[in-house]
Design a protein around this nucleic acid. Sequence first.
DNA 1: TCTGGGGTCCTAGGACCC
DNA 2: TCTGGGGTCCTAGGACCC
Length: 435
Amino acid sequence: MDLDAFFASVEVLDDPSLRGKPVAVGGAGERGVIASASYEARRYGVRSAMPSVIAKRACPLLIILPGRFDRYEEYSRQFHDVVRDLTPDYEPLGLDEVFADLRSLRRLDVRPLDAAAALRRRITNELGLHCGVGLGRNKLFAKLASKESKPRVVDRGLVEGPGVFWVSPAQEAEWLDVLPVRALWGVGPATAAKLSQLGLTWVRDLARVDEATLAQHVGPSMAAALAAYAKGEDFRDVVVDRALKSLGHDQTFARSLTGLGEVREALKVHAGVVARALREKDRVARTITVIVRFDDRTSVSRSQTLSFGIDDEDAIEAIGEALVQSVDLSRSVRLFGLHASGFLERSENQMQLSFGIETASRDAKAGAVAISRGRQVDNEALRDAIDEVRRRFGRTSLATANELSEKGVDVATQRGRHAFGPEVARDERDTTREP
DNA sequence: TCTGGGGTCCTAGGACCC
DNA sequence: TCTGGGGTCCTAGGACCC
């Protein structure tokens, strides 16, 4: 099941004056891309993943809005609530899509086609959104069916989709027969090119090569998946409650950064974002990774794994600093990313916390972390209060003196007064909240 | 026309342990 | 003296999905 033009549709719901207009969500700048486009925009050829510059050219009146992901998450939760009423056996994929295992409906004597239609009605009535449902014997056919359920643009006009589509077992073979390999899960541009070199364009072509040969070109894992798909088989289960494995923050800059100084400034901001995300999700991370992409779009990454988990900005920044130092920054940097992985439950980390300094001294580059860990314990109450204020009033409602100085506020003259002004206090995206 | 940001998974090499 | 085979963990890079 997946929501139609999700981000763009939420924007239209929240601002009805956008209804009927070509709307997209994405980055509007020179380096922006489209994340989601309304059907009106799609009539002009606007598609997700398209560079915004191209989208504007295709559709000069296109309205490109920045994403409001907190809002999309609210809708996503409601979407999941409706799905959960149907079955608890579902697996979200991003914010706007779920795979659901409907076998439990059999016991209740509910037909999947009826359940799907009822689900669509509820999504429309309760959320004001539209969604398509694809039914099939496994994820492979469900996904194909879901695509078929959607509205389509034909000759610049919009053609309604059926809303619910079922690939029945009897039809599976004929569906596979006309399917290009590129349409399969996991086959992107690179794999499609490799397969093309082997003369494999269609799914039916895959059936005539043996898996070992395939594996030499695309690896054993991909080969096994492709061999299965060619037979209409799909070994992927619907996994309920998939655990989060990593989180991070990447930013492409409108103007590339040059030199260690500018990268350090980005690192500081990123460390704050990642640290807050870890705390919000109640995780501590053992591995910190930095990613640097240069103007020629080549990337390098550096990572370090500690013997204990961290979740505060000072520690993450300290590790990030050491990692950034090991990157040659003589070329300008279009993207900087900071990621955290190797999660521990906070309770699993307690032992490490009390032995933090001793443990850290065994980690080659983690001296700085030991210091900030000591400080973290002292400041935990303050930190939690800061998190809470930012959660309620927006990320920019509080700023450190350093951040204010960077914004040009003369912190020294502000002592004894509230050292913030409207330019930093107000989250520009949300004017309904008064800090 | 020139490509985001949130993620997951796979591969390959090296270090290390038993 | 030179050596294996099973396994885990870490690092770096790449492909892919929404």
